[in-house]
Amino acid sequence: MSEKCITVRADLADLDEVITFVEEVLNGEGVPERIVFDVALATDEAVTNVMNYAYPAGDGSLTVTCELRDAVITISVRDNGSPFNPLATPLPDITSNLEDRQVGGLGVHLIRQLMNEVAYRRDGDENILSMRKQIPIAVIDPPPLN
């Protein structure tokens, strides 16, 4: 497949639109349900970060690109907000008990767990977060006939 992309406002009201886009693209390629779940959730976490924090001064947009090539799914999330590397945030302590437990950093932790590779780069005035997920060859379903 070629790359497919969607641009939305950096507003949580548009989060569903992004996730529906990613799910529809991957489902259309016959990607197994469980892989779609992992990629959709990782995309949710990345996009939510941008929507919440990238544009503190006002409105902005973000673009999500979805590509499937050689059984590797690549999701890129681009925004023109303040320079921010989410991968540089401290790792959460996921072993603490109820009273001490904090949830800051959990989104990035989930992205790292759900995807095989995650990379951040600043390119000009863009933040680009790229996430890759390998599909085990044995579980690729054929695309629907219609």
């Binding site: 779940f37 959709a40 959730l41 949710d44 976490e45 939510t48 109820l98 437990r101 949830v103 959990l106 989104g107 989930l110």
Partner: peptide
Amino acid sequence: LSYISSAGLRILL
């Protein structure tokens, strides 16, 4: 649930 993100987990916690 189709999925739960960290925002949802925050509410459960």
